[in-house]
Design a protein around this nucleic acid. Sequence first.
RNA 1: GGAAGGGUGGCUGAGUGGUCUAAAGUACCUGACUCGAAAUCAGGCGUGGGGGCAACCUCACCGAGGGUUCGAAUCCCUCCCCUUCCGCCA
Length: 423
Amino acid sequence: MLDIRLLRETPDLVKQRLAGRDAGLMAVVDEILRIDAARRAAETERQALQGDRNRNSKEIGFGRKNGEDTSAKEAEVKGIGQRIDQIGQEADAADQRQRELLLGLPNLPHEGCPVGETAEENPEIRRWGEVPTFDFEPRDHVALGQALGMIDFEAGAKITGSAFVVYRGDGARLERALISFLLDLHTREHGYVEISPPLLVRAEALVGTGQLPKFGDQVYHCGEDDLYLIPTAEVPVTNLHREEIVKPEQLPIQYAAYTPCFRREAGSAGLGTRGLIRMHQFDKVELVHIVKPEESMAVLEALTGHAETVLQRLGLHYRVIELCTGDLGFGSARTYDIEVWAPGQGAYLEVSSCSNFGDYQARRMNLRYKDEAGKNRFCHTLNGSGTALARLYVALVETYQQADGSLLLPEVLRPYFGGERIG
RNA sequence: GGAAGGGUGGCUGAGUGGUCUAAAGUACCUGACUCGAAAUCAGGCGUGGGGGCAACCUCACCGAGGGUUCGAAUCCCUCCCCUUCCGCCA
């Protein structure tokens, strides 16, 4: 959520920055400012009337104690009460409308964010390693996984539906090995505290991180209990500190969490994608930072580095791109995507998206810290995948396939898997 | 699922219709005393909104939302959460 004061004081700057995402947002800013002016006028009048009522009611109290007849005054104050109700309804309606519009407004792109309209304009920042070569025709993970009995799409479809999968035998064991490897790496070497959160959350948590109200159709909802399945661990983990004023010495906070993630992918063109690439349920290790504002840009670089380390240790070729203003996620001020090479796809797959949200989420969830001067300020929040498991699995299986159809696992995974070869 | 008891400032906790401007304690900050500290004493010390160039003024907030009333932390209704016990259960 953006600071209404920022809109009021520098409307042209806000409009110009939002226009990098979508020119239509400029009209929304004007609408919010119009409502804000009306809201404040109504609020000021309501407060004046409330002050009147408070004074008069107090006099009635004293008057009654002294045995005076206060009925005339009571009638007068009743009239004031009615006017308070009237003007109050106006003020509340404007307040609610203003909040709705503000919640629907995306974050301002950071000034360093490259301007562009589509994903084609995302600049590549760097590459690591090289596209692996094969002296045979590499197969894709679907063919490999089925041949090795690791992945069973039919079983997933049978018990749940399409875009759900069953991992089996060594396939399931490999996923478990990856999870342990990732959590150990981030907690032991990168200083994260491991979190295992609930997978069901209330609506407020989703409002806090920005999925609600705008993207409700992407989240599974359990109507009976009014709870939502998390689309990412970002939601429960960032919200651990919602409505808090953390002490400066608690910062920076950094959490790593392994969870399944559930996404409806409503209207997604890519849901027909073959294999594990886009699923309704997938596993992910998520990294979350809560920091002081002045540190957040440096932390974004560090966070991206932590995610990259995963691919380096696994010996997987990847590239890092930066999202341009038109492709930037709703709440993000600046984002790096990490894309791993998948030989069977002949393409790069997004396995991590590392974002600095600035104070956008913190404002939505009222997450603050007390600075050195004792003043309450909004924290900055960041998160990045470290990494998504399903696509990592794709790249791993396709990269480490052998001519005989078996998989030879990279060194780092062998102790976790309890072996070096599958098949 | 059933029963009971709760939810008040960072924390403990008083307050059952009107000087509540929420007592008191504690923690914290400043000052006094002291060589210094402790103890003691004095003062300060919540969040958000609105107004003002500003010192400041003002409104709201006692789990949330409604209601009754001239007036609600206090009475009524609905909901949420926590604790304890019982039942069921991995």
